Amino acid sequence: MTESPRAALPSLNSPPGDRLEIVNGWDADTPYQSWRPQILVPPTFRQASAPRVFVVVNQKGGAGKTTTTVELAAAWAAAGHRVRVIDADHQEAALSAWLLPQYPEGSERHSLRSVFFEDCTLAEATYPTLFAGVDVVPSSVDLQRVEYERPIGAEQGLAAALAQEAEEAGGRSPYDVTLIDAAPSLGLVTVAALTAADEALVPIKVGGLDMKAMASLHKTLRSVQRKTNPKLSVGAVLLTAWDKSTFARQLATKVSEDYPEAAVVPIRRSIRASEAPLSEEPIRLYAPEAAPAGDYDQAAAVLLPGRAAA
């Protein structure tokens, strides 16, 4: 493949009225008519610093994991960070199809499966995308081999690959941010992703079924913290496809109680944003005026400030 020029990811200059207010607590007595979407940053929240490994996880499909991964990656790249995304979901390989890894012509193509089976290093499985500052470790359906062949040490495989890469780079990851897009199931690869991460980011679609699925996810996260990754914390819960409703308010309150250390960020619904994957561009390029572009931009800044701010 001939190397294509990489598009710069622009900063967003949303009008002040389109930005979400950031608060340390919610006023439960605010009348419905006066209630507005707000980002909750509780006193227990701790902002991250680079380098950082995030895993985007939800055991229910359709919650917006891949969109969250792509948009946060784009926001951090636009803020000056060097970002890598890892596609850890074999189902339809949506992340790899959206970001289109640019494989060198005439070279063997590697993937996350290759890393688990130690056929290559993590660096060798990392490829540039069409967007400046964002690289990708792709996957395809062959990632399922990890689940049924179970290579030795697979639970720790991704953490070990990240540690090896940092050691070879002089003790520090060559990326400011690594974002892992996990599968919507509790398989071996998902456990490996949770074991490798510093923080979990949890997208939850505003809906009754997603609220029911929260109990299973909460149990999984706490189990990983006890057994394979005691340093794992929940950095943010992102309420995707958000519309103003009493239910949305109840859901936000529930997740803030379940994860008191996490920021809670509403990501407003937008038809334009849902079209972005077909354009093979992040929302901030395809529809920068859409509310989710600004919402994800704010979420990224809350979680990990840009280079200038840092």
Rank of each mutant, 00 (worst) to 15 (best):
K212N: 11
L209E: 09
F117A: 06
A75N: 07
S173G: 11
E118T: 08
R172G: 11
S140M: 10
A94S: 15
K254E: 14
A125I: 02
A196K: 02
G106C: 02
S233G: 14
T178R: 04
A290K: 03
L130P: 13
A8H: 12
A215E: 12
D295A: 02
A300Y: 00
T2Y: 11
T240S: 05
H90S: 15
A154F: 02
A197I: 05
G294W: 00
Y103K: 07
A287T: 01
G64Q: 03
K65Q: 07
A290M: 07
A197R: 01
G207T: 02
A308W: 15
Y259R: 09
V134F: 01
F54Y: 13
L95P: 08
A252T: 14
I22G: 01
V237W: 06
S107N: 10
R272I: 10
A183T: 13
A308T: 15
R307I: 07
I86P: 00
G208I: 05
L201T: 07
T195V: 04
L72T: 10
Y148S: 13
S233M: 12
F131Q: 03
A123N: 02
L278T: 10
I204M: 13
V137H: 00
A7T: 09
A200T: 04
A200N: 02
E199I: 09
P15K: 07
T69I: 06
D243R: 14
P305D: 07
S4Q: 15
Y103L: 08
E105Y: 09
H110F: 11
R222H: 12
N229V: 05
A276I: 03
Y296T: 01
A79S: 11
T126W: 00
G207L: 03
A7W: 09
M211A: 12
V189L: 05
E108M: 13
D198M: 10
A8P: 11
G106E: 05
I271Y: 11
T240C: 02
P138I: 00
H218R: 14
L99G: 02
P43K: 06
V191Y: 02
P230Q: 08
W98A: 02
S223H: 14
P31A: 09
V302A: 00
E281P: 07
D243A: 12
